[in-house]
């Protein structure tokens, strides 16, 4: 743990970098904003203690880490874990599957809460509006195990409701659960079902910030519904959407291990295997912390490139971005 305390020192530096010639300027701003610094201190301390102090853990990606040997005595193996990962005969397939799912998630799942929030915003009956809001957020509380088990009950070819309907219409059943073609659509449907209502909350909160006077003014100017949406509502929540999008990119390659694991089976694994499940299978046999960390690090690096890139792009378009 010695390295951890030294990294604490190292990490606290950038926040308070002091260059001799700017000392008085710094002092001035410290004095002026002393309350602000005091306010930021507990949070900053939190991040240093609970996020940066343990961050030495990232280094075990370059080790053959064994818990009983500890960080200091575990063997350093350089890039072996990464080589093992990249040279795996499955790497390209895993990467492709991961990317496709992540992309579908971004394109199909991400915009839905915004659309639903805007639709809810157009409802006039407050009671209906509240009722719908309450109902659509319920799935957030149902665990993936239960969601997938219910999916089986609905979609199985042996008497599942959906397949009974399909059979009545087309005369034959569709193997939704085992046909690789149906794997991704099912994952997306489940994700939409489970997360849309919950994610709507944040957009609704942002919508409360829209200045109602603007609508009144627009009405007087004779602006229709679409123009109000386009010129008042959307601009008001735009920065929130941009932030959410950038933050989402930070988890771009996370497909949700449990979800994928529960939905994959012998017959659809060709499309279901993703990084998260691969780490599980490799780590399963021997508790390979190092390998899991190496894959995590690889994902983090991709994420950081995406986040920084998106942030830059956002700034180019005049958005505030993350910072």
């Amino acid at each position: 743990m010695k390295d951890a305390s030294s990294s604490l020192e190292a990490m606290s530096e950038p926040a308070l970098i002091v260059k001799p010639n700017k000392r008085s300027a710094l002092f001035q701003s410290l004095k002026r904003d002393k309350w602000l610094y005091l306010l930021v201190a507990p949070g900053l301390l939190y991040f240093l203690l609970f996020k940066y102090l343990p961050m030495w853990g990232v280094l075990i990606a370059f080790q053959d880490y064994q818990p009983f040997l500890g960080f200091w005595h575990s063997e350093w193996v350089g890039l072996d874990n990464f080589k093992f990962f990249f040279q795996s005969p499955d790497f390209l397939r895993l990467f492709k599957n991961t990317l496709i799912l992540s992309f579908l998630n971004l394109v199909l799942v991400f915009p839905l809460p915004i659309i639903v929030a805007l639709m809810l915003n157009e409802l006039k009956n407050a009671l209906v509006k509240r009722g719908i809001q309450t109902l659509i957020y319920v799935p957030h509380f149902i665990s993936m195990v239960v969601v997938t088990s219910m999916t089986y009950v609905f979609f199985t070819t042996s008497g599942g409701y959906i397949n009974e309907i399909v059979k009545n219409v087309t005369g034959h059943t569709i193997p939704f659960l085992t046909d690789p073609q149906w794997f991704r659509p099912l994952i997306i449907i489940q994700t939409v079902w489970q997360t849309t209502g919950w994610s709507t909350i944040i957009i609704l909160a942002a919508l409360t910030g829209v200045n109602a006077e603007l609508y009144e003014a627009a009405m007087m100017d004779g602006a229709g519904r679409w123009r109000q949406l386009w010129h008042i509502t959307l601009p008001a929540i735009r920065s929130t959407i941009v932030i959410l999008l950038i933050l989402k990119l930070g988890h771009f390659l996370d497909n949700g291990f449990e979800h994928i694991y529960l939905m994959s089976n012998s017959l659809n694994r060709s499309v279901a295997d993703v990084f998260d499940t691969y780490v599980y299978y490799i780590g399963l046999t021997s508790g390979q912390f190092s390998f899991a960390t190496a894959v995590g690090l690889f994902k983090s690096i991709i994420s950081i490139i995406l986040v920084l890139g998106a942030n830059k792009l956002a700034k180019k378009f005049g958005e505030e971005g993350l910072y």
């Binding site: 012998s266 694994r269 299978y281 490799i282 399963l284 046999t285 390979q288």
Partner: peptide
């Protein structure tokens, strides 16, 4: 080798069995 890749290797065979049956 098995302690490193065992689960992955077993899965190849297990999946093939199910694919063959189906």
């Amino acid at each position: 080798t098995y302690s490193r890749m065992g689960a992955q290797l077993d899965q190849i065979i297990d999946d093939a069995r199910i694919k063959y049956i189906s």
